[in-house]
Write a protein that binds this DNA or RNA. Structure first.
Length: 261
DNA sequence: CACTTCCCCTGCAAGC
DNA sequence: TGCTTGCAGGGGAAGT
């Protein structure tokens, strides 16, 4: 995997750099590096793991697993940080603080930290499907497809609902559901994905009990209705038509009601 | 500007 | 059994 650079350097230039901080916003990892030389500005590694990316701290004499694209030797060389990414959707950008700030500023508020008031405002005036909005990292950073579906189920919102049409009470429920889903996932080991491992190489629990994601054709755990799957914004979207009534159904129900009068 | 669609890549599962 | 085909997802570019 090539490291994208905006400072004209090559990988050798990382030698001797010190890691000053490691931060995260949404799905982007910001690793701040500083040279020994005084007066030098910080450089950054902006790291996106994509779907299958794994950053694992490993003893240097461990055999290198297939699909390992980057190895960063640390300190005395007995350990290294290895980046493995089977599907190669991950991206590393090596840049200066200016560029780092630009990338940071283009991300929406972090899904796990955003306050309810801010979140409700994000939805206002948006005409697109709420599912697409939840996945748009420039609006809200950190949610992927699985947790977007799970959050919408928790709040009882259909994925195609225009975001701006969601009443504040429902928006608050979505905010609550999103935090619940994220907390639950993190607590149970990070993910529901099959080959996930954390930085120490421990496998993810895979025990997150998904309510709708990947359960098309199976019974809703809440009401027994069969879970449906549609495509929204190019992403598979799973929902329970009864627990998450479609805005279109609401309209037709109203029409039916009128017809009956 | 807001929003959607396409594409990258590989492993897995379903279908013939 | 073995091959082919389709699908999945994050995010950036390109399109509407």
């Amino acid at each position: 995997m090539a490291i994208e650079t905006t400072n004209g350097g090559d990988a050798q230039d990382l030698r001797g750099a010190t890691v000053r901080s490691v931060r995260r916003k949404g799905k982007t990892l910001f690793i701040e590096l500083r040279r020994d030389r005084t007066g030098q500005e910080s450089e950054f590694l902006l790291w996106n793991l994509g779907m299958t990316g794994q950053l694992v701290l490993t003893a240097s004499d461990e055999p290198v697993a297939a699909h390992t694209h980057v190895r960063l030797r640390l300190d005395d060389g007995r350990e290294e940080l290895r980046y493995r990414d089977v599907r190669r959707f991950g991206r590393i950008r090596w840049c200066g603080s200016q560029e780092s700030k630009r990338v940071l500023s283009r991300l929406g508020p972090d899904a796990a930290r955003v306050k309810s008031k801010t979140f409700v405002k994000l939805l206002e005036g948006r005409r697109g499907a709420v599912k697409s909005l939840l996945l748009n990292q420039q609006i809200l950073a950190g949610l992927g497809n699985i947790y977007a579906d799970e959050s919408l189920f928790d709040a009882g919102i259909h994925p195609l609902t225009p975001a701006g049409r969601i009443p504040p009470s429902k928006a608050l429920a979505l905010h609550r559901g999103m935090h619940l889903v994220l907390r639950r996932a993190i607590r149970s080991g990070g993910t529901s994905f099959r080959d996930f491992v954390d930085a120490e190489g421990n496998p993810g629990w895979f025990q997150v009990r998904l309510r709708v994601y990947g359960r098309a054709g199976q019974e809703c755990r809440r009401c027994g209705t069969l879970i449906e799957k549609i495509i929204v914004g190019g992403r598979g979207s799973h929902f329970c038509a009864r627990c998450q009534p479609s805005p279109l159904n609401l309209d037709s129900r109203r029409t039916v009601g009128r017809t009956h009068e």
